[in-house]
């Protein structure tokens, strides 16, 4: 544990914990909309911002925030007009973003090591100023996702109903898009743009195997995200592995443990009560 006496390790740990809480709190709305991969698309666009920042010797983080926000807003506008299908719009983002990023980084003086730090995360790159940005923006995202939960739940669950209920659907959609962009960028240094989407999605997928409601899924996903981020940084520091990969592998490991565990539990419970009570009403078509 003596590694955590160094300030840079403390910064990395705090940053990872904030992101571990905020990413699933946002990601649950993306999973609910079946848009689990949007974070990945926005991450690729953020990479173009990193490249522009490195090329013009400006802060890569701020350039990434701008690029990711523009990308997220563009996706939301395309979606709202219904002109392009979802996966085509995502494809444009993925490939345009990563190609732009690689090209701009190549034009700059930066080494491939600095590109790797943004792709997969690096513990030593988080400065005290970065930490302040990460904590302030991460807490802001967390507070918004929790405080607006009823409204965001309604919009993601049934958008037409939300419109008839008079909710500001367009503003809430835009808020989600911008929140994705901001979360991707603040998580970029700790987890990396290629893996941040996993921290938004995997804890939610894990939680919903054992939960029954939206609120309980959100709480459990945030707890799982916190665990994966904290433990992942510890593993990365002790075993000298890439932090993003360690965090994501731990998140996926918890998914497997809980998937197997809940399946076993269901089998055991079925054996314990062999004559299950018949369901009171015939189940006709179950609409999903």
């Amino acid at each position: 544990m003596e590694l955590f006496q160094y300030p840079y390790m403390q910064h990395a740990l705090i940053a990872a914990l904030v992101i571990g809480l905020a990413a699933p709190a946002l990601g649950i709305y993306l999973v609910q909309r079946r848009l689990a991969l949007i974070g990945d698309g926005i991450g690729h666009v953020a990479l173009t911002g990193v490249g522009a920042g490195l090329l013009f010797q400006r802060s890569p983080v701020i350039a990434a925030v701008i690029a990711a926000t523009l990308g997220a807003v563009a996706v939301e506008l395309v979606r709202a007009r219904g002109r392009t299908s979802g996966d085509l719009a995502l494809a444009l983002l993925f490939y345009g973003g990563i190609a732009g990023g690689v090209m701009l980084v190549g034009l700059s003086d930066a080494t491939s090591a600095s590109l790797n730090a943004y792709l997969f995360g690096s513990l030593i790159t988080i400065s005290p100023q970065d930490l302040v940005t990460i904590v302030v923006l991460g807490v802001a995202i967390l507070v918004m996702m929790l405080a607006l939960r009823p409204a965001l739940f309604a919009v993601c669950h049934d958008e037409e109903y939300a419109r008839v209920a008079g909710l500001p659907v367009r503003a809430l959609n835009m808020l989600l898009a911008v929140a994705v962009a901001v979360t991707v960028t603040i998580a970029m240094q700790a987890v990396g743009v290629l893996l941040i989407s996993a921290l938004m999605v995997v804890p939610v997928a894990t939680a919903q195997q054992v939960t029954r409601g939206f609120r309980s899924t959100m709480t459990a996903a945030m707890a799982l995200g916190l665990f994966a981020a904290g433990a992942g940084v510890w593993v990365a520091a002790t075993a000298d592995t890439a932090p993003g990969a360690s965090v994501v592998l731990l998140a996926i490991a918890s998914f497997l443990v809980i998937a197997v565990g809940s399946a076993l539990w269901r089998v055991l419970r079925r054996r314990a009560t062999p004559a299950a009570a018949p369901s009171p009403e015939p189940h006709e078509v179950v609409l999903r």
Binding site: V31, Q32, R34, A36, H157, E159, V204, Q208, T211
Partner: peptide, 10 residues
């Protein structure tokens, strides 16, 4: 209910 949501809701 809409096309279906990915997350359980009570």
């Amino acid at each position: 209910l809409g096309a279906g949501s990915g997350v359980p809701a009570t």
